[in-house]
Amino acid sequence: MEAKAVNSHGWPLRRYVTVAGVVSSHKFYGLLLRLENGDEGHVDSSDVADHPVSPADWPPVGKSVKGVLLGPTRMGRVRLSLRDSDVALVEELRDPEADIEQWAALKEVGAGNVNARDAFFASSGAVPFLRWALVRPSYSSDKKLAEELLIMAPRGIKSRLGLPE
C-alpha cells in the first residue's frame, strides 16, 4: 500500500502508525512534540491519556514518547494520540488503516447490518477493536457499538476477550 501524506508539507507517513517524539512544550490546548523526522506534532489535551488528566500530569518537556499518527490538523501540524489504548490497538492490528476504515464503516451502518457485522467478526481486527472500544468512556459511540456487537459475537471472539459465552 502506498504511503499517504498526512500534512500540508507532504510528510509521507501513513495514518495510524506509531511514531516517536520528544515533548517540546506544553500549551493550554495540549502538547507539542518534536517528531523523529524533525516535524512538529500536536497532541490535543483529550488525547494525552486514556482518562482525563490535568496538565500537571502530562509528560514533561524533554520526555520521549510514542504516539499514534492521526493525521493533519487544520494548520498542517501532525496530530497524534498518546493514549496507551490507541498505541496498543494500532500495534496489535495487522493493517491499522484498513481495520480502522472497517470499524468506521460498521459504526455508520450499525451492528444490525448483518454483512458488515459478519465481515467485522471474520476480520483479524475484531478482537483488538472490541478490546479497545470496551474501555472507552461510557458515552462513547465506540463503546456502545462494541456492547451491541458482543451480544451477537461468536463464541470464539467472546472467549478471546475473556468473556463468558
Rank of each mutant, 00 (worst) to 15 (best):
D86R: 04
W103V: 04
I157H: 10
R117G: 05
A88M: 05
L149W: 10
L150S: 03
V87S: 01
G110N: 03
A119S: 11
D99P: 03
A104G: 13
A56F: 11
G125H: 07
A105F: 10
T73R: 04
A146L: 01
D95Y: 02
R77C: 08
G110P: 04
V78F: 13
A98N: 05
P52H: 09
M152D: 13
A105P: 02
S140P: 10
D99T: 02
G71K: 07
S85G: 00
P96I: 04
G125D: 09
D84E: 13
A146H: 03
Y139N: 14
G67Y: 11
I157A: 11
L69S: 06
K143R: 15
A104Y: 14
F129Y: 15
G110S: 04
S141C: 08
W132D: 08
W103M: 02
P154K: 07
S141W: 11
D142F: 10
L93G: 05
V135N: 11
F120W: 08
W58D: 06
Q102T: 11
V65N: 12
M152V: 10
V109S: 00
S85D: 13
L106N: 02
G110I: 02
K144D: 11
H51N: 12
D95Q: 01
G125F: 07
L149I: 09
M75E: 15
A56P: 05
S64F: 08
R117V: 06
A133T: 07
D50N: 12
V65M: 12
E97K: 10
D84A: 06
H51P: 00
G71I: 08
V78M: 15
G112Y: 02
I151A: 14
H51R: 15
S124Q: 14
R77M: 14
D50G: 06
K107T: 00
L80C: 15
G76T: 00
I100C: 04
P59H: 00
A98I: 00
L70V: 09
P55I: 12
P72Y: 05
L106D: 03
H51Q: 14
S123W: 05
R79A: 15
L145G: 06
V53I: 14
A116W: 02
L149P: 03
D57H: 14
V109T: 04
